[in-house]
Each structure stands twice: as structure tokens, then as C-alpha cells.
Design a protein around this nucleic acid. Structure first.
Length: 272
DNA sequence: GCGACAG
DNA sequence: ATCTTGTCGC
């Protein structure tokens, strides 16, 4: 698939000010409310999940929506001329239906808040090779949890106009409504609100800390939560619901894990 | 000036 | 993101 909004394609040669202005423009047209055609209750990733679990049954016997996981790996990551490997794995329920990838030289270093300008080009190149039409894209990184509400999930989601969510392992900005230092049981959700560093009214819920995996005993080891946020055409609440459905016993959603592994495979081949 | 920062 | 064996706890 190709960009619906070519004017939003991330250009690494822009000045920092131009990048930030583009992000504000993207956030203006981004959809942070549900606006997609598939049934969220039909989304699943666990092969042992027949769709009749506590999460709620699908309304019909239709095939599960197509969910793509997107992840990057780098060859010579700390070098100026590092190569970005972008991998996309398309899934339907627990089935992998397509895998595509793209390898491109990185143009700029990693800068917090400008990640999409470093990795976005390779991601869009990989999407051009994708033949299936995704119902939802899951990105590694933030969406609305971003200074200008335009993290990589929002940037790419809006550019392709595809429903998208962001899944990050660390919090970029915003303020948890409750302390995340205490033990959170599996399934716990803590709202992440906009603070003064975010271009949204203070208190706006821009995402959630979601405890996708946790050990039963609070005294022993603990797992860090995921930070999920809307990318495009999905609300913060539904984003969390979808990520919950896509997790199958591991901390990360299944499409993300698959893309993670595939990116590593490609990287191993590329660095010969 | 201080603090804080996805991958 | 990346470099990496063993090791602790469920």
C-alpha cells in the first residue's frame, strides 16, 4: 500500500522546526476516536482462543481482521551509516498471512520525539511491498503519547490512513494518573494524562499503562507495563482493548513479537 | 537553570 | 535500538 497523504511522508532532511510543525499538522488530522470497519471483538492472536473467552465473543463467525505488526532492527546501530530493517508481519487471528521487509540507510540519529523521521522511510517502503490490506497496524513506539501527539504510530497511521495503535516499552511523556511504582496485577490499566509537555489540554487521557503480563506473587519479580496509545482512528480505550486481545501469554502483542523476530532474521542475512 | 526524553 | 552467559524465580 502507498501513502494516502504524500505530504506527510517523513522527510529526514527537514529542519527540527519543520519536523515539529509537520507533527502538529498530522495531529490535527489524526483520529483519536474509533473509526474503523472491523469488529474489535473478532480480534485475536492466541491459537487457543476460540473467540468465546471472557474478553467477549465475536458477533459472527467471520474471519478475524487482518492485523499487521511493524518493528525495526538495525545493522551497526550505533554507526552514522546504520541500516534500518523494517519488518511487517500480517496476521489473521493466529495465522501469518504475509511477511515483507525493507532495508534502508538511516539519514539521521535517534532524537526523542522525532523517531518517525529516522524510521518512517523504511517503514513506508516495507508497506509498499505489502499486498494485503490491513485492518489495523501495531507499531513499536508511541502514538498519541507524544509531545505533539504525533508519535510514530500516528505519523505512519495518518500517512497511510490506516487504523493504528502504538505499543511502547517506555513512557515518553505524560503523567500516569496513579503511581506505576507499585505492583500492578495482570490486566491493570492506568490512564496516562497530558501534562504541560503535551499539546493537549492538561488531563486529557492520551493513552494507558497496560499490564499485559505479570507474576502472581507481588513479593517476587515483577514485569513493567506496556504504554499503549492511539495511533490513528482508534480511541485510547479501544487501543488498550485491542492490545489486550492481541497478547497471547507474553508481554508484547503477538504481531509485534512476530515482526520483531522477522526483523532479526533479516538483519542476520543483511550483515554478511 | 533544572529535569526529561519512544527506538 | 544493540552487545551477551549465566542465573534467579515461577
Amino acid at each position: 500500500m502507498t501513502p494516502v497523504h504524500p505530504e506527510f511522508v517523513p522527510d529526514p532532511t527537514l529542519s527540527r522546526e519543520e519536523m515539529e510543525r509537520l507533527q502538529r499538522d498530522i495531529a490535527d488530522v489524526a483520529g483519536f476516536e474509533d473509526d474503523f470497519a472491523f469488529d474489535p471483538a473478532a480480534v485475536r492472536a492466541d491459537p487457543t482462543d476460540d473467540g468465546q473467552t471472557a474478553l467477549g465473543a465475536a458477533t459472527d463467525d467471520a474471519e478475524p481482521p487482518v492485523v499487521v505488526g511493524v518493528d525495526q532492527a538495525f545493522v551497526d546501530a550505533f554507526s552514522e551509516d546504520a541500516l534500518a530493517v523494517s519488518a511487517i508481519v500480517a496476521t489473521r487471528g493466529s495465522e501469518v498471512i504475509e511477511e515483507v521487509h525493507a532495508v534502508e540507510p538511516t539519514e539521521i540519529p535517534y532524537v526523542p520525539g522525532l523517531l518517525s523521521f529516522r524510521e518512517g522511510g523504511a517503514i513506508l517502503s516495507a508497506f509498499e511491498k505489502l499486498t494485503v490490506d490491513p485492518d489495523l497496524a501495531v507499531f513499536d513506539g508511541s502514538g498519541r503519547i507524544h509531545f505533539r501527539q504525533a508519535g510514530i504510530a500516528t505519523h505512519v497511521g495518518v500517512t497511510l490512513d490506516v487504523p493504528a495503535v502504538g505499543v511502547a516499552k517506555n513512557l515518553l511523556c505524560g503523567r500516569p494518573r496513579e503511581s506505576l511504582d507499585e505492583y500492578l496485577p495482570q490486566g491493570a490499566r492506568v490512564a496516562i494524562e497530558a501534562d504541560d509537555s503535551v499539546t493537549a489540554p492538561s488531563g486529557t487521557v492520551i493513552g494507558y499503562a497496560y499490564q499485559s503480563r505479570q507474576y502472581d506473587n507481588p513479593e517476587t519479580r515483577h514485569v513493567n507495563p506496556l504504554y499503549v496509545s492511539p495511533g490513528h482512528r482508534v480511541s485510547a480505550e479501544t487501543t488498550t482493548d485491542l492490545v489486550e486481545r492481541l497478547c497471547a501469554g507474553y508481554k508484547l502483542p503477538e504481531p509485534t513479537r512476530l515482526a520483531d523476530n522477522y526483523a532479526d532474521e533479516v538483519k542476520a542475512e543483511v550483515r554478511d
